[in-house]
Amino acid sequence: MHSGRESMQHWTVDVIDSQGAIKKFKVKKRDVLNLSDGERIVVDFDDLDSPIGEGQGVLAGFCGILAKDSSIFPIHFKKWSDLPAAYFNRCFDQFIQSRFCFRTTESNARRYVYNSMCKKWGARRLKLYDKVYDQFKSKTEIMDKVPAEIPRDQWISYVEYRFKEKTMEMCKKNAEHRKKQTISHIGGSKPNSRRRAEMMAKTGQKPGRGELYLATHRNEDGSYVNEAAKEICEKIELAMNQSTTNESEVSAYDAVGKVLGKEHSGRVRCLGLGAVPSKTFKQTRPRYSNLNASSYNNGSCSSQCQEKYNQMLKAQNQNLDNYNVMMNAHAQMMNAFKAYIIMKEGTIPEQLAEIFVSMSPSTRVLENDAASGSMDVRSSGDSNAIDNQ
């Protein structure tokens, strides 16, 4: 279990060596570069594939160091996704993979590191520009104020991009959107994945999104950060109290989802960096009756859910078997009836002809089989017809 941070001066982490031995180390983010050969900092991941523990703190800080290095990630590209993939892959392979031991899949580790660097690269560019920007200065004057650690050609290209009409319009819209964000939080720089793990270690229970939202919008004395937050929190608390499902399970239909509405494609509220609806909610479905469809873990259905599914599948197969038996009995009865009519009348009366013409494919095949003396054989086409029904 992961409790809170032991010290604000350093991170206390597990370090594994080339022999598999694990020791406790006290490190700062820059100490990562000084690890001995074969030593790697252990980073745990939770059930939502997000990093947790103090290892996450070291990893995030080290990602910031790398993302801010303009020799690794130049700043003159329009956006992070425009950087060649080789830049990130080379950085991950050379600096990250050799210094961190991820207790998850490599794809999860790469996804988190990529998103973390993206956020820090963009924030760093904004900070550099805001530091020198002056509305009364010309573009040329701002270009001349090259930050000490940035190559001149990168800075000139970036300033050129910032002065484009399309870029300036986008920045203006973003500023207007930020003014509409009236609900602040007290989460600080700690990601909710770590906060979630710490709350679980403290209470022994897994907190849901509702509890995480309340924890980051109320002060230590229980008061709310502002009136807007109070209104939302009270609605979430009411939804949690009225809920008939397990609110500790992350779901699009939990209290946060009901109160705040549908998520945007690029994030999931209260789950932090990298969480997206397509991945987080891919196995979440509404709950009906007593069938619990929320107990999924890492892509595997729980034993209870699997048992319910097997019971339903068995019942369905039994119904299909009963249907096939009924259709066979019906076909034999119709054949016998037709033979009786022909024996008594010599032919099929006109008023009864339509009955035999409208016989199902299965009945007609069985009729042919009866004429040939084989009543137990069906064609593959008939089998498919019955299965479809």
Rank of each mutant, 00 (worst) to 15 (best):
G188Y: 07
V146L: 09
A339Y: 13
T203D: 07
M8S: 13
P349R: 02
S116N: 11
Y323P: 00
A336D: 11
Q304R: 06
E160L: 15
P147R: 08
K26T: 11
G53I: 01
K206P: 03
C270T: 12
K139N: 14
H177R: 14
T363Y: 03
Y323I: 04
R218A: 02
K202R: 09
Q318C: 12
F281K: 01
D130R: 13
A339T: 10
E149W: 09
E354M: 08
K127A: 15
G187I: 01
N297C: 08
D321I: 05
K344F: 14
E220V: 08
Y224G: 03
G257C: 02
R267G: 07
K139D: 14
C233F: 03
M8A: 14
E176I: 08
E54W: 00
D47T: 10
V268H: 00
E307N: 06
R125L: 13
L271H: 03
G299P: 03
A339F: 10
A229K: 01
Q94V: 09
D17M: 04
L313A: 14
K190M: 15
N174C: 10
R40L: 10
G187S: 15
P51D: 06
I52Y: 04
K164M: 15
S295G: 13
M8C: 15
F92R: 00
E39N: 14
I150R: 05
P349C: 08
M117W: 05
M359C: 09
A385E: 06
K24Q: 14
D130Q: 15
A148K: 15
K258N: 09
D37S: 15
R196W: 02
I232C: 09
M240G: 03
A86I: 11
F281C: 01
P277N: 03
R110S: 00
I142A: 11
L214W: 05
E165S: 13
Y296V: 05
N317V: 08
W80L: 05
